[in-house]
Nucleic acid binder design. Structure first.
Lengths: 179, 179
DNA sequence: GTCTATATCAAGATAGAC
DNA sequence: GTCTATCTTGATATAGAC
């Protein structure tokens, strides 16, 4: 089943589907290969190791979020905190399936730290963006970590907030983007 | 090597030592058994599965942190935000070795969600404590998630803060505990 | 270049002896 | 309560077909 460059994308789709349907614990090469319609060997031709597959998933996830964030930012006024606002809104509007994928990558990342390198760089860039927003260091840092506290809680299904509390919290974060 | 009830503690110590020395990726039953001076079979008598072992590690970690937090809180004045202050200070003063252990448990938890159940309950109790502190909902929620944003960043070695920035951020969090 | 089939190895788990 | 031996599964490597 030769699909050229598209095979990569098909395999990444399959990997995400496996995680969403069966959870991070069932993300095995065999399951992904079956879902993608290739053999394990075929999968390993495109991604030489499971770690490479996970890296592929993480890279694509970050890239897609960045794209959505950029588009959102273009629709906002060029006021102080607009970039931060775009980040928060993009996350708030994203669908819950992504969290399962994020959870799988978190599991992999804690297992093999170097896998998180792209996420680490993205994290740093985002902090710098918060810092450049015109807010004070204190305000920007609190806003940044409060936002990521929510993100990580979501990724680990740890958040104890009721839906309306969650909404109120997100509104408060947005309010804090104004100097 | 019959050590009765102490064997459990010895095995948990060994598991922590393996994680601290070799990282989460090398936490295998064989490595823990060797470090504890028992066979794999002997280890599995005390912890019937790897998941049980991880749960044992997590329970003990939470219990120890709670103990330290309680002692810290007793030394503080009974002012609004004192409980929150105790939580933040206890974390700020804890040593970095615990983060490696926490990282391993995070990895395991993302892999097997039910393992995080005790952490989930602890998380909820802590949020309720923040809410009962006399601060507004908004202030308490921002403080809570900002604190845990830092904690999770540490656990994943993701935090891009320089040491002095980190100190400034922690001071800001403590300042926010005052109504 | 792309893939299948098969082999190898490590790790978690089980059964039963002591 | 602990050990040895064994089973199973998943990740990874290789040989070679198309």
């Amino acid at each position: 089943m030769a699909r050229g460059a598209n095979a990569r994308e098909a395999i990444l789709d399959a990997a995400e589907a496996v995680v969403i349907e069966s959870g991070a614990g069932h993300l095995t090469l065999a399951a992904v290969a079956a879902k993608a319609g290739v053999s394990k060997g075929g999968l390993l031709y495109h991604f030489p190791s499971k770690e490479d597959l996970l890296k592929g998933m993480l890279d694509r996830l970050i890239q897609r979020f960045d794209q959505a964030r950029k588009e959102k930012a273009e629709g906002l006024k060029r006021e102080a905190g607009a970039q931060i606002k775009a980040t928060i809104l993009t996350y708030a509007e994203g669908d819950a399936r992504k969290e399962k994928i994020g959870s799988a990558l978190l599991a992999a990342g804690a297992h093999a730290p170097k896998l998180l390198q792209p996420a680490r760089e993205d994290f740093r860039r985002r902090l710098e963006e918060f810092m450049r927003s015109g807010l004070s260091f204190q305000r920007a840092a609190v806003l940044f970590f409060a936002f990521y506290g929510l993100v990580f809680s979501d990724l680990l299904s740890l958040s104890p907030l009721k839906p309306q509390e969650r909404q109120a919290f997100l509104r408060e974060l947005l309010a804090l983007t104004k100097p």
